[in-house]
């Protein structure tokens, strides 16, 4: 909860991220070496990069009657202001398959209905309001919304993608059982990298 130190913490992560990105940017020897470098990015920056990639490797069913092919893809974020900031920086001026990207903070499960990707923070950070997966997931059942969260047991609770820590890496697990009902088509590269989620506590 709110405390000056929390603001510091928030900044700290952003700063760390930018510092890391800065170092990445200096790496002339190509991206292949990025992974090998010891430079770490902070978790909100990594999560933002994941969300962008999930969007890239997911196809949404055509919306009936939708003719505007340039309608934006909407990424909704609940409970993590740092991620919101990282994501906004990351998607600035970028498009995916010709669609502009819109990042929005969501405070209500119903806001998630208008999103393509929804991220639910699983850990209380500062003053941010958390949205419970149990509130959001049932509402989105069978709808083409890619739900992502780092909440423990998210996949077991019906969510589609769970992010979790594995050593020093951030990994993800895909709920392949729930996918067909949503109409979402996930690229095989994404599915191939999916891991088994840790057992919920």
């Amino acid at each position: 909860m709110p405390h000056p130190l929390h603001a510091l913490a928030r900044r700290s992560r952003r700063l760390l991220a930018v510092a890391a990105i800065f170092c990445l940017g200096l790496s002339e020897s190509g991206l292949a070496q990025v992974a090998a470098s010891a430079t770490a990015v902070d978790s909100s920056t990594a999560t933002a990069a994941y969300l962008l990639n999930f969007l890239r490797f997911t196809e949404w069913p055509p919306e009936p009657g939708a003719s505007d092919i340039a309608a934006p893809y909407v990424i909704g974020v609940a409970g993590n202001r740092d991620l919101l900031d990282s994501l906004i920086t990351l998607v600035e001026g970028r498009t995916v398959r010709g669609h502009p990207l819109r990042v929005t903070r969501i405070k209500d499960a119903r806001n998630a209905l208008g999103c393509h990707v929804v991220y639910l923070e699983g850990e209380k950070i500062g003053d941010d309001y958390l949205l419970s997966p149990d509130e959001v997931v049932p509402l989105l059942q069978g709808r083409p919304v890619l739900t992502v969260s780092n909440a423990p047991g998210f996949v077991a609770r019906g969510g589609l993608v769970q992010l979790f820590r594995e050593g020093t890496q951030l990994r993800f697990a895909i709920n392949t059982d729930a996918l067909p009902a949503t109409g979402l088509a996930l690229n095989s590269r994404l599915l191939a990298l999916s891991r088994k989620p840790p057992a919920a506590p």
Partner: peptide
């Protein structure tokens, strides 16, 4: 940096070391 991170291949992203510190480090240092 942003360019690089956004264009990182998925396979590289899963190997990227992530700093999970959520405490009071860098911003306070600044």
């Amino acid at each position: 940096g942003k360019e690089d991170l956004a264009s990182l291949e998925l396979e590289q992203l899963v190997e990227l070391p992530v700093e999970f510190v959520s405490g009071v480090s860098k911003y306070e240092q600044s």
